[in-house]
Amino acid sequence: MADGTTAANPIPRRRAYRLLLGAALRAQLQYRSNTLLTLAGGIAYQGVGLAFVSVLVGRFGAIGGWSLGEIAFLYGLRVTAHGLWMIPTSQLFVLDLTIRTGEFDRYLTRPAGPLMQLLSREVYLATIGDLLTGVAILVAGASQVDLDTSPGALLYLALAVVGGALVEGSLQLAAASLSFRMLSNQSLRLFIDGIMNNFGGYPLKIFPSVTRIVLTFVVPVAFVAYLPANVLLHRTGELALAPWVAWCAPLAGPLLIALAYLVWRTQIRHYQSSGT
């Protein structure tokens, strides 16, 4: 307006997020049958994974001294953390696409954070399937094992799930951030997802030590579920690490996600937009 003011005013970030998410949900519900199918797909995908493990355990009785119940608990912990992370962040997977199509330009011309706009561009309901399956497996596993149910232990369990979600999230966020420079890095992100999926749900002690070191310190899969599960199942004694490291595993999440957000902040400066 010529008088030097506009009608626009800042709004709280949380409100902007709610507005955008609500719009994405309304849009998603226009495709009802697709929604139900993806939800079912999510449940089936994780269910197949567990079925595979239970066949293995059924055949051999136990894996690395872990009973079926214990493995289910560990597996459930991993899938729950995964589902918890994926629900709000599934759209990280299409960051490179939004950059290539120019959609990301739009995020930068709107009065809201670009990461938040990316995450709320669409609701991908298959992720709810992941979470539901994860919780179901976790509960089923927990009923089979000698689990400490004191409030302290349950609180630790909750923190472990959140921490695990953040560990996986930090890897995916950092990897997605590279899209600003590499344009396409789907393979890297699928690689991380593959590692999480293939190694995250098993007792890592069954692997050779080099693999264990890689899965603990390079791609910190161990922090997602294995270390907290050791604590909750009273198995810290069999770890090569000091028990306090396992106890502190839930702290890795917040630490790594902060680092990953830093990566995002530095990489977004390299954004070059698309050709036109």
Binding site: A8, I11, A27, P111
Partner: peptide
């Protein structure tokens, strides 16, 4: 995927009008 009216309403809220 939303009716035009929805988009316009949303813009108003997002810009705090």
């Amino acid at each position: 995927d939303l009716p035009l009216r929805d988009s316009l309403e949303l813009i108003g809220k997002l810009y705090g009008v």
